[in-house]
Simulated assay, not measured.
Amino acid sequence: MASHGTSHTVDWVESRWGKDAVARVVRRTPITHGYSSQSVERLDLLVEVGDGSTADLAVLRKHATAAEVTALRALRDVTDTRAPALPELLADGNDAAGPWVVLPFYSGSTLASEAEVCDDVLQSLAVMHVRHVNVTLPNLPVVDRTWWDNGFRHVDRRLSELLPTASEPAPLHEALDLVRRVRGEPLLVRTPERLSRTLVHGDIHANNILAGPAGSKIIDWGAATLGPAMLDLANLVSPDSPRFEVYADAWEASAGRALDPRLVNVEYQWATACVNIKYLGFAAHHLGGDAVRDMLERAQRALDALARSGA
Rank of each mutant, 00 (worst) to 15 (best):
I277T: 11
V264N: 09
E193I: 03
D240F: 05
S196M: 12
L233T: 00
K217F: 11
P261E: 05
G222Y: 14
F244R: 04
Y279A: 07
A283Q: 11
E252Y: 00
E267S: 15
E245M: 09
A255D: 09
S196E: 14
Y268A: 00
S238N: 00
A248T: 10
I218R: 07
D232Q: 15
V266G: 05
N208I: 01
A229Q: 06
R190C: 07
W221I: 10
S241K: 11
M230V: 04
S196N: 13
K278N: 12
W221D: 08
L280I: 08
A271D: 06
A283I: 02
V246W: 08
A223T: 03
L259I: 04
F282K: 08
N208V: 03
L259Q: 04
L280Q: 12
I209R: 13
D260L: 08
Y268M: 04
R257Q: 05
D260W: 06
A258N: 10
I219S: 11
A229R: 08
G215S: 08
K217Q: 15
D260M: 02
F244I: 06
A229T: 01
D232I: 13
N265E: 15
A253S: 12
G215Q: 05
S216E: 07
G281T: 15
A283H: 10
G202H: 05
N276K: 05
N235V: 09
A223F: 04
P213D: 15
P261M: 06
L210T: 04
P192M: 02
P213K: 12
V200Q: 03
G212P: 10
T191F: 00
L236I: 12
Y247D: 02
G281F: 11
T191G: 00
S238F: 00
P213S: 15
P192F: 00
G215E: 11
A284I: 11
A206V: 05
N207S: 15
W251R: 04
A206H: 15
E267C: 12
Q269K: 07
A224K: 04
N208Y: 05
R190W: 02
G256A: 13
E245G: 12
P192Y: 02
L195Q: 03
W270K: 02
P261Y: 06
W251K: 03
I209Q: 12
L280S: 06
A234M: 02
G281E: 12
S216D: 02
G281D: 09
V264M: 08
A223W: 01
T225F: 09
N276Q: 14
W270N: 01
G222P: 01
R190P: 00
H285C: 05
G281W: 09
Y279I: 13
N276W: 05
I204E: 02
L226D: 01
N265P: 03
A214D: 15
C274N: 14
A234F: 00
L280E: 10
T225S: 12
R194V: 08
A214Q: 13
A250Y: 09
L231I: 08
P239V: 07
